[in-house]
Simulated scan of single mutants.
Amino acid sequence: MATLADPDRSELTALWAGALGGDRAPLERRLAGASRLPGPRANLELAARFADLVGATADDGRGAAVELLGGWLAGPPSDPGLPEGGEEFLAACAALAAGSVAAGSAADAADRLLTAAAVDDRWRVREMAATGMQRVLRADWSAGLRAVRAWLRSGEPLEVRAAVAAVAEPPLLKEAGHAEEAVEVVEAAVDLLLATPSGRRADDDVRVLRKALGYAVSVVAVAHPDAGLPLLERLATSTDSDARWIARQNLTKARLAPFADRLAGAREAAAQPR
């Protein structure tokens, strides 16, 4: 099935209103048809516009909105004839839109949807859960950070990964206090990974967490060098092979160029076989 052109705002608004009224199938077909899946890149622009629209839902419609989004995350859509990739795209849209709902009203139900999306088997859905949490952090850093810390406390590698991905976003870290708290989140995630028994380190969910830490440490280190660079140096000099892998991955990032002299020792240490 050929990819359809994106719906304009008026069409998307009408389709969303119809879905809230109980007729979900036309919206599902329209979003799925413009998803660009199963290609290499989903239609993230459409997902973002849809999330904006959902976030603007009136208070008396938010319960129905959360229920609809939860349906897309939990099971098949109402239309069984969607094109390939359509069901996954709807779930990803639901994850991002849940962030918009949570940002607008701090709804517990929307937070639960984000958590469910964070541990979804589909990587696109997990990615949108983290991006959805960034919408919460952007609207209310304190509220978002409470949710991020709940993900950390779970100890579940995919939830921890979502916490890391949510805070490792440079535009969110312009305030020094936010940046320092982001370092704390990433360092806590590092500690959880390194405390994982060696027999579990090769599990898929743990590897997904390790991969996220392979870029996130440098993001938060640049935002708050006083707290972040020591973390990077600690990883580089660790006897743990995963810690040094995380250090090596981060030390290749161009964003660390201003700290090249300070990190010379860390680069040398991370490269040493142990």
Rank of each mutant, 00 (worst) to 15 (best):
E175L: 09
G99M: 01
A110M: 15
A130Y: 07
A116D: 04
E175F: 06
T131W: 09
L82R: 01
A19P: 02
A165Y: 00
E180L: 14
D60G: 12
K253N: 12
G22W: 13
R41T: 10
L15D: 00
R41Y: 10
A139P: 07
F89E: 00
E159F: 05
P38N: 06
E67A: 01
D111G: 02
L46A: 08
A227H: 02
V119I: 06
A179I: 02
D140S: 14
L137W: 02
D120M: 07
E181L: 10
V217D: 00
V54S: 06
E127H: 08
A212D: 04
D203N: 12
N250S: 11
A19I: 03
R200T: 03
A118G: 05
R41W: 06
T13I: 08
A179V: 02
F50G: 04
G81E: 15
L20T: 00
H224T: 07
R24E: 14
A270N: 02
A2M: 12
A271M: 11
S154M: 05
D226S: 14
A109Q: 05
G86M: 04
G228K: 01
A110S: 03
H224G: 04
A116Q: 06
D60E: 10
A74E: 08
A266S: 08
E11F: 13
H178S: 09
E268P: 11
T252M: 09
A212C: 15
A51L: 09
L82S: 00
D140H: 03
R267L: 15
E184S: 09
A58F: 12
E233S: 11
V219H: 04
V101L: 13
F259T: 09
G199M: 11
A179K: 01
L235V: 08
H178I: 07
L235F: 05
A266M: 10
P38W: 13
R153W: 06
G104K: 15
L173Q: 06
A266N: 04
L20F: 05
G85W: 03
M1K: 08
D240N: 10
D6H: 04
E11A: 11
D140R: 04
R62W: 11
V167S: 07
S154Y: 06
R49A: 13
L46F: 03
P80C: 10
E169R: 11
P170C: 15
S218W: 05
A216W: 06
L113E: 00
D79G: 04
E184L: 10
D203E: 13
A143L: 09
L137C: 12
Y215K: 12
A162Y: 01
D226H: 12
A97Y: 00
P83N: 05
R49I: 02
A188Y: 07
